[in-house]
Design a protein around this nucleic acid. Structure first.
Lengths: 203, 203
DNA sequence: GTCTATACAGCGATAGAC
DNA sequence: GTCTATCGCTGTATAGAC
């Protein structure tokens, strides 16, 4: 992670190998789970040795933390992008569901949805990071729902917070189940219906 | 599993040890995942040796299959019980959600929800059994929803099948997320709202 | 920053005595 | 039906050369 004179830099000046490690580990965790992948899996995929991986990430726990941090940051940026480019609240919700669909198309689970299943086996720091991810998603959705309600483009009952929670957990569950059927369309149908039922545009 | 002259029988004549093994393994899988528990965990819990476990269940795959079979059977019986004892469709849906809540109270995930996360690492027979579990739940819910629609006690849009799928995946996701917060109330709120939105009683 | 070599614990599984 | 003993393999992690 140092910025000193070492080879193999990407265009942004960051070292390339750590990124490749994160990419490989991320895919493995999303597809197989944190407890079902090993340093050896990454090493063979990148044609490195296990010892080299430990140079970049001291242990599996640290690798896991870096994984969630990067994933959460990427998600956060995607939400900012939706805020900037998409029109009214209903469209923002659809774009949000689209993020999940893209993940599922790679036959992956949401990283934090997968880690939620393995929650009880995770190191403390990873647990906290998973919860923060859900909190951030919920907060963003709550804001979108509140705006939609205020400007009259969305109608729903109860608090925006509860609706936001239902959307997060509904989409996570739809991914979880749809993946066992290898059927992205099943997710799409559930997501569409979920949004339609939770927060609908006035007729 | 034989019925011949051996010690330690339960009142139904079935051997006791296999049941204890299944109980222990079930709890471990629901809390930690199929890839995060070992024969050694069960052995220490039951004060047996790993070798003894292999006598009852040849391998982890066979144990996993037996686990899902028993869980699915128990769920099926619970659904039959709901059919027999509960009144109209809306109440049946609430009772159905109550089954999930009970599981979550033990800080457990739904067995098949957990296995769905680990799906890509499971032996073929276990994969098929997980899908059959979801199919059975969906079929029961579809039937309840259709009855409710016909007798006018439930209103919802689109097909009963799609609504059933949304309920299954919504409840699975609500469990998954609520468990990371250690908060059964969060599940209850999401479940209530999900049912209210997906299939509501006419005003 | 990557390597070879290795330590050491844990895994699922089996053989064979009792 | 349970035990002891052990096998072969894989897991994470470390030491030290290059």
């Amino acid at each position: 992670m140092s910025r000193s004179g070492s080879p193999q830099k990407g265009r942004d000046g960051g070292a390339r190998t750590p990124v490749q490690i994160l990419d490989s580990a991320e895919r493995l965790v999303q597809q197989r789970g944190f407890n079902a992948f090993s340093y050896a899996d990454i090493a063979s995929e990148l044609a490195l040795t296990k010892a080299s991986l430990h140079y970049h990430f001291a242990g599996k726990a640290e690798l896991g933390e870096a994984l969630i941090a990067r994933y959460a940051l990427r998600f956060e940026r995607a939400l900012t992008e939706i805020d900037a480019s998409v029109g009214h609240a209903g469209e923002k919700l659809s774009a949000y569901a689209g993020l999940y669909a893209t993940v599922l198309e790679g036959e992956r689970m949401c990283l934090c949805g997968m880690l939620a299943a393995e929650y009880q086996t995770l190191p403390e720091a990873m647990r906290n990071a998973v919860v923060r991810f859900f909190d951030a998603n919920e907060a963003w959705l709550e804001r979108v729902l509140q705006h939609g309600r205020r400007d009259g483009t969305l109608h729903f009952r109860g608090s925006a917070r509860e609706a936001a929670r239902l959307i997060v957990s509904g989409l996570e569950g739809a991914m979880l189940v749809a993946r066992t059927y290898g059927d992205v369309a099943r997710f799409q149908a559930a997501a569409h219906r979920l949004l339609e039922n939770v927060a609908r545009a006035p007729a």
